[in-house]
């Protein structure tokens, strides 16, 4: 009796697990994913990588940028590793005509993800969103 109860419970759990997995797969498969433009150059010399692994950058680039901005504005620290200008220099995107796109374009590296996630940024109200802008 006990054994059959246990096996029933296990069967139930397994069913739930299978449902969950298949359900989630179905959801992910149907949603559009952001198209991320490739960086034009590598931040780390000789390697095709960013200043930190991509997974970390996706999660916490805003913390790095915020920390750097305070250090730069108030203390004059001008290291390049987490400087916004350096992000832009690497991640600049060219459109079909070979022109650098501004933040207004969905092809812009930052905009590609942020428009997908519905995050409105005000970095670009002040900062240049293309290398060498205005010059």
């Amino acid at each position: 009796m006990r054994t059959s109860q246990r096996s029933n419970t296990l069967l139930g759990l397994a069913t739930v697990a299978v449902l969950l997995i298949s359900g989630s797969t179905a959801v992910f498969a149907g949603a559009p994913v952001p198209i991320l433009p490739e960086a034009v150059k590598s931040a780390v010399e000789g390697e095709r990588s960013c200043v930190r692994p991509a997974q970390e950058m996706r999660r916490s680039h805003m913390d790095d940028l915020k920390h750097q901005r305070d250090d730069t504005v108030h203390e004059g620290v001008r290291t390049k590793r987490f400087a916004l200008k350096e992000c832009i220099d690497c991640h600049v995107t060219n459109d079909a005509n070979g022109e650098k796109v501004s933040i207004k374009s969905r092809e812009h590296f930052c905009n590609a993800c942020h428009s997908y996630t519905g995050v409105t940024l005000d970095c670009w109200d002040c900062h240049a969103s293309q290398p060498g802008g205005g010059q």
Partner: peptide, 24 residues
């Protein structure tokens, strides 16, 4: 007014006050 095409080392934008930075 909103500004576009800022210079990378001289960020400036609508809604903020600015002045000489002694070219910091």
């Amino acid at each position: 007014e909103a500004i576009e095409n800022q210079i990378p080392y001289a960020p400036r934008g609508k809604g903020t006050v600015e002045s000489c930075t002694m070219c910091v």
